[in-house]
């Protein structure tokens, strides 16, 4: 059982770290895309405040997007893979 606990603890820590890193990465990509989108278009009000507002609105939208939610798979998938492996190796 100690082996299972070790796997569970280290696996959870590794998955949490990957989740955190992917979260930051994905957010950074979205912000960069929003910045480029603003900079590429013509705007009546091209002040830095309007740009910041546009980006913040886009980021707020991103926080509810599917892509943001899919990152949860990093925490879920490894456990599913372990379950499938146990079935395939021992019972299939």
């Amino acid at each position: 059982m100690i082996g299972f606990l070790r796997l569970a603890i280290f696996g959870t820590v590794a998955a949490a770290l990957s989740y955190w890193a992917l979260l930051i990465y994905s957010r950074s990509l979205r912000r960069e895309a929003l910045e480029k989108e603003w900079d590429g278009d013509w705007h009546e009000d091209a002040s830095p405040e309007a740009r910041a507002l546009f980006i913040e609105e886009g980021m707020a939208e991103y926080e509810h997007s599917l892509r943001r939610k899919l990152i949860w798979l990093v925490l879920v998938l490894p456990a599913v893979v372990v379950g499938v492996l146990i079935y395939l190796v021992n019972y299939a």
Partner: peptide
């Protein structure tokens, strides 16, 4: 291999 490395999760040696 049990829960250890490598992660084959093999428990069915006798089978």
């Amino acid at each position: 291999t049990g829960w250890n490395w490598p992660p084959y999760f093999k428990f069915d040696t006798a089978s």
